[in-house]
Structure formats: C-alpha cells, structure tokens
Amino acid sequence: MIEAAMIWNEPNNKSHWDPELDPDWSRFARMAVLSADAIASENPALTKMLGGISPIDPGFITRMKEFGVLDHVDAVAVHGFPLDWNLWQIQEWPQKIGEIATVTDLPIWVSEVGVSTFGAEEIQVWGLKRTAELLLGNAPRIQWYSLYDLPREWEATTRHREAEGSSYYRHFHMGLLRQDGTPKPALEEFLRYTPAMGLVQWFHFEDPRLDDAVAWMKRLGVTNMRTGLSWADSFRPNALDWFDRQMEALAAFDVTVTFCFTPEHRGMMPHHTSPPLVPEEFAEFCATMIRRYAPGMTSASLPTQRASAA
C-alpha cells in the first residue's frame, strides 16, 4: 500500500526545519542520506523521496545535490500555494516545475497544492480548476491539500502562529470538507479530476476523522494519497496501535508516507523542527516503519516456481 516514502516535510521551511540550528542544511542532508539508505535496505523497490520543498527553490535542490542527497533518492517534490502564501501567481506553475527540472533529472512530484476558502469558497473552486489545467499530465503525482479543514481548536504546524496574521488562519480553511464534514463547492469540481489527482490528509494522533476520511476518498474515486507517520508520535503510549490502525485503514490506496517531526527529547532543541541529536535514530524509525508496513521481498518470501513437466 505504500508506494513512496518521503523523508521529512518542507525541509527548507522554517516551520518544519530550524535554519538557526542547521544554517547550511548539512545536518539535514546527512539525516536524509542515512534515512534513504535505511529505507532502501528494507525495501529496495520503494520510491524514496526528498521531502517536498516550500518555497520552490532550485537553490535548495542544488545544495542537496552538492551534499550527495540526490544520489540516494528516486524523486523530489514541490509544494505550492500561490493563492495563499507564495509570492508568485498561479499561472507560473509550469515555470516553477521547470526551475527544478533545470537542476535535477529526477522526477518532480507536486505532493501538496491547494487553495484556502479563507476569503471565499468560490476562490477554491476556481483555483482547483486552474491548478488541474496547469499541472495534470505534467508531473507523476498531483496531490491536493487537503480533504478536511483543520479543526479550529487545533494548532497549525507553523513557527509563527498568530504573528502571521491572515496567513496563519488560512491553514484552517484548506479542506474540500468543512470541519463538520459538510462539503464545500470545490468537492464537486474535485470529482472531475480523480483518479489523476490525489489527496493529502494529515492525521493527528488517534484522529477521529480517519474512517470518515477513508470513506470520502473512496467515494471520490481517489486512488493515491499522502499522509504522515510522526517520529515524535512514536514515543506516545500505544503509538504502534494507532499507526497500525491508520495504515490498515489506508490499505486501499497508493500511499506516500511522510516521515518527520523530531521528538522534543531527541532534538538539539526541544522542538519538532530541530535536527535530531543522533540522525541515525530517525533513519532507524524510517526503517522500522517500512519493515512494518512495506517490507521488501526477500529470497525466503519469493514464491517457489514449480518445475514444468518434461
């Protein structure tokens, strides 16, 4: 059920990786190489992906190439939100992908793209339609963010919170479904693009929306989706029970699983954006999850071929 393993989420975004602790991304690069190799050791056939970048910056990809990271992964990914957060216009999508293509020959996935309904729900309908026109057929994967609005009582994963002004509150309005599960107008438009377009849905620990999300994705004709397994959550009581339930529920889909989030007690600083004290520990977490949910074929598990009769 896992088709790709993504190493971290938006590593060039301050909300997900602390640039003060790793100003040249050398710590991230070492962790990424270790993790990619650990994943490959468990399942060589699995697609290994560099965490989707935001902003879309060819300079960051070049830095990863210089550190040798791109020699250990099979694809790179980009995230773009030109109607909400980025300083470029939606029609520049092909140009943005082209900028990355100038610095790497690896496949380029669009593993997060979306439009909020913060200003008006009609904007999301137009943005989804225009995104589909610009991107479908031009990348191996297009994954729309997201299925559900973020519940208002939860916090968005960002370093700046309310200091971002309206940018912070847009995080809560990215779904095709409202917080109460009722459809927004863009849901009907989304039906026109499945299964070519997939979905992104992050599930919080013991997320009560899991079963309803699966039912909605099946109803919408979604065949590929992206979610995450949190290294930090792995230290919670009953973590494996939750991981098992989540991955079993998603078994019907081709899943891009994102490994990320540093446990507070295992970071250089007590924050999920911190580089780990011991990067091999994150690599082992990745390997453990692949061993559990996407084990590779070994000589012992290969089917025995029967000799044909003479």
Rank of each mutant, 00 (worst) to 15 (best):
M6L: 11
I7V: 12
W17A: 00
A29S: 06
L34C: 02
D37I: 02
S41F: 02
P44E: 09
A45L: 09
T47S: 13
G52K: 08
D57V: 01
P58H: 06
G59D: 09
R63Q: 10
K65H: 09
G68Q: 02
H72K: 15
D74A: 06
A77R: 05
G80C: 03
F81W: 12
E92D: 13
W93D: 01
P94C: 01
E99V: 02
E99C: 04
A101W: 05
T102N: 11
T102S: 13
P107M: 07
I108D: 09
F118S: 03
I123N: 13
I123G: 04
Q124R: 08
T131V: 03
L134D: 03
L135E: 07
L135G: 05
N138P: 00
N138L: 04
A139T: 12
Q143G: 02
R152W: 15
E164I: 01
S167P: 00
Y169P: 09
Y169K: 12
H171I: 01
L176R: 10
L177I: 01
L177A: 06
Q179I: 13
G181R: 00
G181H: 00
L187Q: 10
E189H: 08
E189F: 02
L191C: 10
Y193W: 09
M197R: 03
G198Y: 05
F203I: 05
F203V: 05
D212I: 00
A215D: 09
A215V: 03
V222S: 06
T227S: 13
L229V: 06
A232D: 15
R236L: 14
D241H: 11
F243G: 04
A252C: 08
T262H: 06
T262A: 03
H265I: 06
P276D: 06
P279F: 14
T288V: 06
R291Q: 15
R292G: 11
Y293D: 08
T298C: 11
A300H: 14
S301D: 11
T304A: 12
Q305W: 12
R306E: 15
A307Q: 14
S308D: 13
A309H: 08
